[in-house]
Design a protein around this nucleic acid. Structure first.
Length: 496
RNA sequence: GGGCCCGUAGCUCAAUUGGCAGAGCAACGGCCUUUUAAGCCGUGGGUUGAAGGUUCGAUUCCUUCCGGGCUCACCA
């Protein structure tokens, strides 16, 4: 550690560690001096139940968080994984040498301690452990953030999440909720006959979404590989293989801009169900979200961004055409060519990107004027075919596909289709897409011949669905940025 | 990538029109045996993100760079 530049407080703590060693106290002992008998929460609950009579010794462990030193006695709070508990340390009880030298001078806020003592209630009514013996079990070399304000600096919170977590209990709660959401999803899908599977993260050909991939290289094979941008094409192969219901929860990687709702790697849930279509998928999504909400929100009413949201099914279903017509007055079916639609958009003050396809214009109209207002749960159904190459056409209208996205709190949360299972149509769509993309983008998607081959062996009529776990977590924890629900969000590396 | 905003002590934040860089918590020394944002007395702690410029004088104004936030673009 030669080149470490230590500040005053770090130097003092190192001196204290050295002094402890001089006294024969290891600041990082290999094991606890006493076996822990209770967590903080268990000790308080047991005392409240009357299971811990006055004087019965217990052993607690935890991090020292606050200290109120009053001469020959002190109150403090320690915190373990279950919560906080107050402790009371009296010089007469723990001994003068320990109290004056170790406790008062050499143990700091932030240090981990073990202690034995008995429970009692203070004059002000707080359940407290009166310490008879205490030992340092791990020394902290940095001061903790402000005990009242916590750690606020956004950059430090993300770069040093461990400090954020230890200082801000509400941040720990967010990631507990995230885990409960994922557990609820698994429980729901497992309980409904879905098989959890794992498909390749490293793929020779990427597909299933319109995103730029990260590329990597297998040295021994001399092969370029892509980090997956979706699971879709692999999961549908599994339905060809005979599984009727499959799902995967895992990481997707997209080499694109970062925003409050985009992280380069994010967690996705996709599930596919044979012998259904997008209408059944809507009912499944409602049912699954209800299961999650009951689990993590205790009911179907949640608050997001100051809005009261009611998740009670059935949710509103409206076609993209009607949704756009309702808010902008533009019925895009009246403008079959790109130029006319762009002109109509300019007439309402919208400035369309010059070289957009018709599908992109419609999408842009939608995301600008409709999406932000979709606060209550809403299915937007029936999308333009140009922006939906993996969805089945509507029988009555070949310009439109059987697809929905669902929105809650103004957030786009997920996407689903009646899966396109005609191999020839699928090939035609891939080819058309390639031409569109090659036109305005260097990002040319390779044709996945093996996927087309799989379709040629027969994919049953299938409903498929994908949703972002990170955004779901934003919804259920009322966070406005995806970085608040990813433990270690991607940040630019610090160079200078 | 574009636009706007931000970066001051370990943490949270001040600093008037360009005029001696401060407070609370934390730290250090002392008093205090039921406190809880404990209290009281005292002390130390700064490359004001970095580099350059303007000026008698820059935390403050200008330029470039680094990092972050919001936003736009991108995201079938």
């Amino acid at each position: 550690m030669d080149e470490l530049e230590l500040n005053e407080q770090q130097l003092i703590r190192r001196d204290k560690a050295a002094e402890l060693r001089g006294l024969g106290v290891d600041p990082y002992p290999a094991r606890l001096p006493w076996q822990r008998t209770h967590t903080a929460a268990e000790a308080i609950a047991a005392y409240e139940r009357g299971d811990l009579p006055e004087g019965q010794p217990i052993t607690l462990v935890g991090r020292l968080l606050t200290l109120r030193l009053m001469g020959k006695a002190a109150f403090a709070h320690i915190e373990d994984g279950s919560g906080r508990i107050q402790i009371y340390v009296k010089r007469d009880v723990v001994g003068e040498t320990f109290y004056n030298t170790v406790f008062k001078r050499l143990i700091d806020l932030g240090d981990f301690v073990a202690l034995t003592g008995a429970m009692f209630t203070t004059r002000t009514g707080e359940i407290t452990c009166q310490v008879t013996e205490m030992a340092l079990i791990s020394k902290t070399m940095n001061p903790l953030p402000d005990k009242w304000h916590g750690l606020k600096d956004t950059e430090t919170r993300y770069r040093q999440r461990y400090v954020d977590l230890l200082a801000n209990t509400e941040v720990r709660a967010v990631f507990r909720t995230r885990a409960r959401i994922i557990a609820a999803i698994r429980r729901y899908l497992d309980g409904n006959g879905f098989l959890e599977v794992e498909t390749p993260v490293l793929q020779p050909i990427y597909g299933g979404a319109a995103a730029r991939p990260f590329t990597t290289f297998h040295n021994q094979l001399g092969q370029e590989l892509f980090l997956r941008i979706s699971f879709e094409l692999y999961l549908k192969r599994l339905l060809v293989g005979g599984y009727e219901r499959v799902y995967e929860i895992g990481r997707d990687f997209r080499n694109e801009g970062i925003s409050f709702k985009h992280n380069p790697e994010f967690t996705q849930l996709e599930f596919y169900e044979a012998y259904t279509d997008y209408h059944s998928m809507m009912r499944r999504v409602e049912e699954m979200l209800v299961a999650i909400a009951r689990e993590v929100a205790g009911g179907l009413a949640i608050t997001y961004g100051g809005h009261e949201i009611d998740l009670t099914p059935p949710w509103r279903r409206i076609t993209m055409r009607d949704a756009i017509r309702e808010t902008t007055g533009i019925d895009y079916t009246n403008y079959p060519d790109v130029a006319a639609l762009a002109e109509a958009m300019r007439a309402i003050g919208h400035q369309p990107e010059p070289r957009s396809s018709r599908g992109k214009l419609i999408d842009s109209l939608f995301s600008t004027h409709v999406e932000p207002a979709l606060i209550q749960p809403t299915f937007i159904i029936d999308y333009p075919i140009e922006i939906s190459p993996l969805a089945k056409k509507k029988a009555a209208d070949p310009t439109t596909v059987e697809r929905f996205e669902y929105f809650i709190g103004g957030l786009e949360l997920g996407n689903a289709f009646s899966e396109l299972n005609d191999p020839d149509d699928q090939r035609a769509r891939f080819v058309a897409l390639r031409e569109v993309l090659a036109d305005d983008d260097e990002n040319i998607h390779p044709l996945d011949e093996d996927f087309l081959n799989a379709l040629s062996y027969g994919l049953p009529p299938t409903g498929g669905f994908g949703t972002g776990i990170d955004r779901l977590t934003m919804l259920f924890t009322d966070r406005s940025s995806i970085r608040e629900v990813i433990l270690f969000p991607h940040l630019r590396s610090v160079t200078g």
